[in-house]
């Protein structure tokens, strides 16, 4: 995974993306015990504003294809890792901006903080997302005040309450 992160860092260095952070299953696993997951979700920020009708991410993929990486379904296979790039919306944008800087085998990367991960997962609301929320609440250190603030800001408090009710 070190090499895949290095390639993603290159995208930032070359200005193809403004910033990024790891999200999804791998970010959850950063805070919890290991569990089975298959892809690396990368939330990206670009210079494009989210209000634009068309978001053109093709320069990113042209660059990756030139480096020899190929599509495998919805993922692009970078150094053996299926990577999914997700253009960040407002909640995810803030999550990327406030993500934790960590090192993986000596390479710097960013991982979405658990409070934002929970908000993103609650909003998605699928069974597997709810399972991740439960793992994070049980195994990670969560700043509950910050989590509530995020849920309030993005109108997700109700999702959290319905989750608590089961």
């Amino acid at each position: 995974m070190r090499e895949a992160i290095q390639v993603i860092n290159e995208l930032k260095e070359k200005g193809l993306i403004k910033d990024y952070a790891i999200g999804g299953g791998i970010a959850t696993l950063f805070y919890t015990e290991p569990f089975l997951t298959y892809d690396l979700d990368i939330f990206i920020l670009t210079e494009t504003t989210s209000t634009q009708t068309i978001i053109d991410l093709s320069p990113i993929f042209e660059y990756l294809k030139q480096k020899g990486y190929t599509w495998k379904g919805e993922h692009i296979l970078i150094e053996g890792v299926p990577v999914q790039f997700i253009y960040a919306d407002e909640l995810e944008k803030e999550a990327v901006e406030k993500a934790r800087i960590v090192e993986y085998e000596g390479v710097k990367t960013k991982v979405i903080a658990p409070e934002y991960l929970i908000a993103i997962l609650l909003r998605a609301g699928r069974k597997k997302d709810r399972e991740k929320v439960e793992k994070l609440l049980q195994e990670a250190e969560i700043d509950m005040k910050e989590l509530q603030d995020i849920l309030d800001k993005f109108g997700l408090r109700e999702r959290s309450e319905s989750y608590e009710r089961g």
């Binding site: 950063f30 015990e33 569990f35 089975l36």
Partner: peptide, 27 residues
């Protein structure tokens, strides 16, 4: 059991990725 899960959660990121690959092989 709960303590064990919390201990596993504290493993280094690199170690967790190694375990993940092993889980993928098992699956």
């Amino acid at each position: 059991k709960e303590r064990f899960h919390k201990e596993q959660a504290k493993l280094p990121f690199e170690e967790k990725i190694k375990i993940l690959v092993e889980l993928q092989k098992i699956a």
